[in-house]
Design a protein around this nucleic acid. Structure first.
Lengths: 201, 201
DNA sequence: GTCTATATAACGATAGAC
DNA sequence: GTCTATCGTTATATAGAC
C-alpha cells in the first residue's frame, strides 16, 4: 500500500518521463497515468491540472542543469579546469538523461512569458569569479579578446548542440546508437582543446 | 479570384508559419486556415490530412538548410573560406526565419522513423572535397588531428546553439531582442577565429 | 473549388460512490 | 485517497449543397 508521498512521487516521475518524451502539447494525461500505473483522476487530485503538473516538472528539470554549471563556474578552479568540468558535466548528465536538454530548451522557447520569469527568479547571474578570470586572462594577453558571455556560449554550444540534434546527427553521419555515443565521447577532450587552442598547429 | 495554385500556396505558407511557431502537436488546423484566410475544409481538399500537410512543410524546411551548407562545403573555396561562408549562411538564414532551425531539429527528434528515412533519401553525404581538405590539412600538420565530421559538428554547433536556445540565452544574459541579435552578430567573426586559432595567444 | 454543417474521436477535467 | 463514470470542449475529418 503506497503512502501519499509515494503516489505523488510516482506521478511526478511518470510525468517527467512523458513530458520529456512527448513535449507539453504531445503529452497525454492518460499516458502519464498509465506510466505511473495509477488512475487518471489522481493526476488532478495531486496536481490541479496539466499546466501545474508540467510547471512542476519543467522547473525541476531546469534546476538539474544550470545551477550545477554555475556552481562549477563559481568554484576556485582555473579557467581551463572549469571548462573541462563543465564539458564532463554535460556529457555525464546526457548519459543519464538524453532527453533532458532538448526538453528544457524547446519548452523554454514555447512558454515564453511564464518561464522567463522563472529563470529570472533563479537569480542565475554569471559568477563573478568566472567573469574576472576571463577578463584578467584577456587583459594579461593570455587569451584573445572575448566577453565572458561569449566564452560560456561557446562551451555550452559545443557540448549541447550534438545532444539536441541527436537524430539529425545520427542520420547525417550514419551513426548507430553506439557510434553516436562514441562520437560524443570524443568531444570530451576535443572541446577544451578547441576552446583554448583552436585547430591551427 | 485566386487560382488553384494560389490557394494551395497560401495554405502551404500559412501551415509553414503555424507549424514553425507551434510545432506539430501544438498547431491547429483551424489556426492554419485562419492564417491563410480560407475555410478549414480547404486544408483537407488540397492536403489530405494534418500529417500530409506537416510532412510537406517539414521536408521543405529541411531542404532550405542542409543542401545549402553542403553546397558550400562542396565548393572550391579554401577550408577557412568555407567556414566563414557557412557561418554567414546560418546567421543570415536565421535573420530571415528565426524559427526554422528550432523547428527542424525538434521535429526531427519527435518523428524518428519517418524523417530519418527522408534525410537518408536526400543523399546528404559530406562532400568529398571537404573531407579531403580536412584530412590533408591534418596530414600536413596545418591542423590538429580531427575528423571531418567533428570539424563540421563544431562549426554548426557554434552557429546554431545560440539560435535554438534563444529564450534561454536572452533570459540568462538579460538581453533585449536587439541586444540578442548583436550578440549573434559578434559571433560571425568569433566563430571562424575560434575554430582555427582557439583563444590562446 | 469553396462553403456550411456535422460526424467522430480525443482530451482535460469533475462528480460522486466507496 | 482511490476508483468509475461522465461531462464539456476541442480536435480532425467528412458529407453534401452550391
Amino acid at each position: 500500500m503506497p503512502t501519499e508521498k509515494e503516489t505523488e512521487q510516482k506521478i511526478f516521475d511518470a510525468a517527467q518521463k512523458v513530458f520529456q518524451r512527448s513535449g507539453f502539447k504531445g503529452a497525454r494525461m492518460q499516458e502519464i497515468a498509465d506510466e505511473a500505473g495509477i488512475n487518471k483522476s489522481m493526476l488532478h487530485y495531486y496536481y490541479r491540472n496539466k499546466d501545474t503538473l508540467f510547471s512542476t516538472v519543467f522547473q525541476s528539470a531546469a534546476k538539474k542543469i544550470m545551477p550545477r554549471v554555475f556552481g562549477i563556474l563559481a568554484s576556485e578552479s582555473s579557467l581551463r579546469e572549469k571548462v573541462v568540468q563543465v564539458v564532463e558535466f554535460y556529457h555525464n548528465a546526457f548519459r543519464e538523461n538524453p532527453e533532458l536538454p532538448s526538453f528544457v530548451i524547446y519548452e523554454m522557447n514555447h512558454h515564453p512569458q511564464q518561464f522567463k520569469d522563472f529563470i529570472g527568479s533563479m537569480e542565475m547571474h554569471l559568477p563573478e569569479t568566472f567573469i574576472e578570470q576571463v577578463e584578467e586572462a584577456v587583459e594579461s594577453e593570455e587569451l584573445r579578446t572575448i566577453t565572458p558571455d561569449q566564452f560560456l556560449m561557446n562551451v555550452v554550444s559545443l557540448c549541447m548542440m550534438p545532444m539536441l540534434a541527436r537524430n539529425m546527427v545520427q542520420a547525417l553521419f550514419h551513426l548507430t546508437d553506439e557510434e553516436y555515443f562514441s562520437f560524443l565521447d570524443e568531444r570530451r577532450q576535443l572541446i577544451p582543446n578547441l576552446i583554448f587552442n583552436g585547430l591551427a598547429l
